[in-house]
């Protein structure tokens, strides 16, 4: 198995701004013009208040670790990566995302819930995936 076997997301008309954003190094999420809430995953309307056509904004990329597993059961193309961290992170703007953690050992002692994270971007096929790494703590 090689990286080429790993799943590559295929954007849809509704999600395309998200995937165009990652190629430009931006983590874009939707924001409802009516109720002001941030929305993820992308949708044609606001799931909170029903307003149509939410706007797109650039998120800060700052997040915290919400939950995770240290996975030993590799997905397609991930055989050489085990064990790896599959995480749910909560963006500063509110929405949660699934992701992988990078730049940290897959060790429960190193993975503290609520630890601060920041987005990094990694190429995957013809797309770019957002992943997250711990924020360096400055002395």
């Amino acid at each position: 198995m090689t990286v080429a076997d790993k799943p590559v997301p295929v954007p849809t008309p509704v999600t395309r701004p998200f995937w165009e954003g990652t190629k430009e190094g931006e983590l874009r999420v939707q924001k409802c013009d009516a109720c002001g809430k941030h929305i993820f995953y992308p949708r044609p309307g606001c799931p909170f208040c029903g307003a149509a056509d939410p706007s797109w904004v650039v998120a800060t990329g700052r997040a915290r670790l919400e939950s995770y597993v240290i996975n030993h059961l590799p997905g397609p193309g991930f055989k050489d990566d085990v064990p790896y961290v599959i995480a749910i992170v909560t963006l500063e703007e509110g929405p949660r995302m699934m992701t992988n953690l990078v730049g940290v050992d897959p060790d429960p002692a190193k993975l503290t819930l609520d630890m601060p994270l920041e987005v990094v971007f990694e190429e995957r096929g013809d797309q770019v995936l957002p992943k997250f790494r711990p924020v360096e703590v400055k002395a």
Binding site: T15, P74, G75, L129
Partner: peptide
């Protein structure tokens, strides 16, 4: 397929 499977979740 876009927001979970790329992260190596298989099952």
């Amino acid at each position: 397929g876009q927001f979970e499977l790329p992260y190596g979740v298989v099952a």
